[in-house]
């Protein structure tokens, strides 16, 4: 007996990651999945936007046009957000935070355009979490030196060190799981609605798309960047 689907088998509920094609690499079978393709599409969109923005900014006019206005608005918004949280450290991390902000935001809202959001794959969000983890600890060693890091680990007493180490390791895991689970829950909800209510799902799922893809995606992007900035600013602080 087929135990594959616990839900009704007649409905085509589909929110899983699918393999598109596979190839052999050093004896391992590597799959190119839908996540890779969606990441590629998102990347192409970002690259096209960046090239267009670069061209517009290089020939910037005194009275900005529509696209120049949009670019300036995005940059100003990011600058204000990063400057408000990180203060004097903001110039060094503007690039990183801006990049992950735009990438996560476009990934989250790509569900609106019929793609499976790349951030609903734990591989993508875990990579983002690991990047943040590396940046936090690089800056911690750079600014607080080895002595400060050890002092931070033995914060109340040296016996606390194992718990502090677990707390440090939990940072990227909780960051990435939060983003992953939020986007995945939205994807699953939309798949259930389209799969189980396919007869009557005519126009009203649009409102749910606004909530699950646009609102939830924007909030989670903001939260991810905000927490990343807070952690990095904490790591940079010397006392």
């Amino acid at each position: 007996m087929e135990q594959g689907v616990l839900l009704t088998e007649s409905a085509d509920i589909d929110f899983m990651i699918h393999g598109v094609f596979s190839y052999e690499l050093f004896g391992q079978t590597v799959w190119i999945t839908t996540t890779h393709i969606c990441v590629l599409i998102v990347m192409l969109v970002i690259i096209a936007f960046c090239l267009a923005a670069n061209r517009v900014v290089k020939h910037a006019s005194e009275v900005p046009g529509t696209f120049q206005n949009i670019v300036e608005m995005v940059v100003e918004m990011l600058d204000n957000m990063i400057g408000g949280v990180m203060g004097k450290f903001s110039p060094k991390f503007r690039n990183y935070i801006g990049t992950i902000f735009i990438f996560i935001f476009l990934s989250n809202i790509s569900g609106l355009f019929g793609l499976r959001p790349p951030t609903a794959d734990y591989g993508v969000t875990f990579a983002l979490g690991i990047m943040t983890f590396v940046i936090i600890h690089y800056n911690q060693f750079k600014y607080q030196k080895v002595k400060g890091v050890i002092a931070g680990l033995c914060d109340p007493w040296p016996i606390w060190a194992p718990i502090n180490i677990i707390g440090e390791i939990a940072v990227p895991i909780s960051l990435s799981l939060r983003l992953f689970a939020n986007v995945l829950s939205g994807t699953v909800m939309m798949a259930l609605i389209y799969g189980l209510l396919s007869k009557i799902a005519i126009i009203w799922p649009g409102a749910l798309h606004i909530y699950f893809d646009l609102f939830s995606g924007a909030i989670q992007t903001y939260v991810f960047c905000m927490l990343t900035m807070t952690y990095i600013a904490n790591a940079c602080e010397t006392d």
Binding site: S174, L177, R178, A181, N182, S185, I219, Q220, V223, L227
Partner: peptide
């Protein structure tokens, strides 16, 4: 709220 939501998401 988004941070508090994490436990539910687990």
């Amino acid at each position: 709220q988004a941070v508090a939501e994490t436990t539910g998401l687990y």
